[in-house]
Design a protein around this nucleic acid. Structure first.
Lengths: 223, 223
DNA sequence: ACCTGAACACCGTTCAAGT
DNA sequence: ACCTGAACACCGTTCAAGT
């Protein structure tokens, strides 16, 4: 599906004017400068100085283009590094590394969740994560399930936060939540009413790592 | 933004041919029978026997239509019920209720993550969840953060699972993950190689509740 | 082998006019 | 007040032809 780099160039035929690399590079520029929603095959074609259909000679379709883009990003940011040797800390650090890499490209939310594996370049971190959980005493099966729970939490944090941010951008009407919280019935919803005016700053805080630590602790507690 | 039901009907002017209710009902039918991707304003218009532009008299735009659809679903499925009195079990049950409601409408993935509140009809469960965490000994602040961690985990589980399912449907080529796992280097990735052929059945299991219990346990453990 | 032009089959939404 | 028709400004992708 991916990275089966374009068929080996034959000596015959017309020489290529644009390359897959150039297509991906240009796509990345559009996406980082203006957002995914501005990345269209037509726009991309005109940016590389070609026609929409020329692109289809270098990528199968738009979906493949997005996957290539994600892979490209992972290759740049997810390089194996020093991780803590203490296994629990290794689990936290590996998850946080994946999380950080994804934070840097919120545009990829739509591809990110396509499979439980986003890129071969993340594989090393997944290995470290699973291995760390096993070293903490989990069976291999439970370690894989633990990895998945961590992945759900991580993907969810990114999807929720970036979708909320995207919606807020260029939309200064109050949120649906703000409207509801403003007129909250304190008898029916005492806790929510109590915290209503602190909700905004509370949820603006980055609590990814706290939640992650809690989840890891909980996964390990049973054994 | 939502549910400010259409301006009170005046006696003057042309009598309406279609109602907001009819629009939402028809949209729900299309979406449950054929999927969100088939719900277009044009299709919906022809289904209610009208023109695309007539719809804009009943809903602001397509986004509002989707929010109305989600709210409609929540109203049908998220009715307050008996929850366990033991606070920790109440937290788990409230989260599981929200999760179950969302599972029944995977089509709503694209709206679901718009804000940290999907519908007023979920409010009662959020209240129960936060209250349960407080009863377990958390401060109100930490209870809210706990709720958010649970929401990330829940939303992530749904988004990942349904996107994966959507991708698999009508696409019998092996997944990217399958390809990668088939040719995994056992020296570089020993754990992943070890579990490669069990990955499929392992990840097919529904482990939402296990992960949820672990997360809740971890959130409570610190205090 | 690689690229082009024209066309297909769509979108959501605005505008101006009708009843 | 509610609805219609035509149009605007787009999409991704296929097909047939060119070099």
């Amino acid at each position: 599906m991916q990275q089966p780099s374009p068929a080996p160039r034959k000596a015959t035929g017309r020489p290529p004017r644009i390359s897959r690399e150039e297509v991906v590079d240009t796509a990345r520029r559009i996406v980082t400068e203006e957002g995914v929603e501005r990345l269209t095959m037509r726009r991309l074609a005109s940016e590389v100085g070609s026609t929409p259909m020329a692109l289809y000679h270098h990528v199968r379709n738009k979906e493949e283009l997005l996957v290539l883009l994600l892979d490209d990003h992972a290759a740049r940011t997810l390089r194996p590094t020093e991780l803590p040797s203490e296994p629990r800390e290794r689990v936290v650090a590996a998850a946080a590394a994946i999380h950080e890499a994804l934070c840097a490209c919120p545009w990829i939310v739509e591809v990110l969740t396509a499979d439980d594996l986003m890129s071969t370049h993340a594989l090393w971190f997944v290995e470290q994560l699973v291995d760390g959980l096993v070293d903490c005493g989990l069976s291999l099966e439970r370690a894989v399930q633990g990895y998945r729970a961590i992945w759900y939490y991580t993907a969810g944090e990114i999807v929720v936060r970036t979708t909320a941010a995207r919606r807020r951008a260029g939309n200064d009407r109050p949120t649906y939540r703000e409207q509801v919280f403003a007129g909250l019935d304190a008898d029916e919803y005492p806790r929510l009413a109590q915290v209503a005016d602190r909700w905004e700053p509370l949820t603006a805080q980055d609590t990814y790592r706290d939640g992650l630590r809690a989840l890891v602790a909980g996964l390990l507690a049973a054994h």
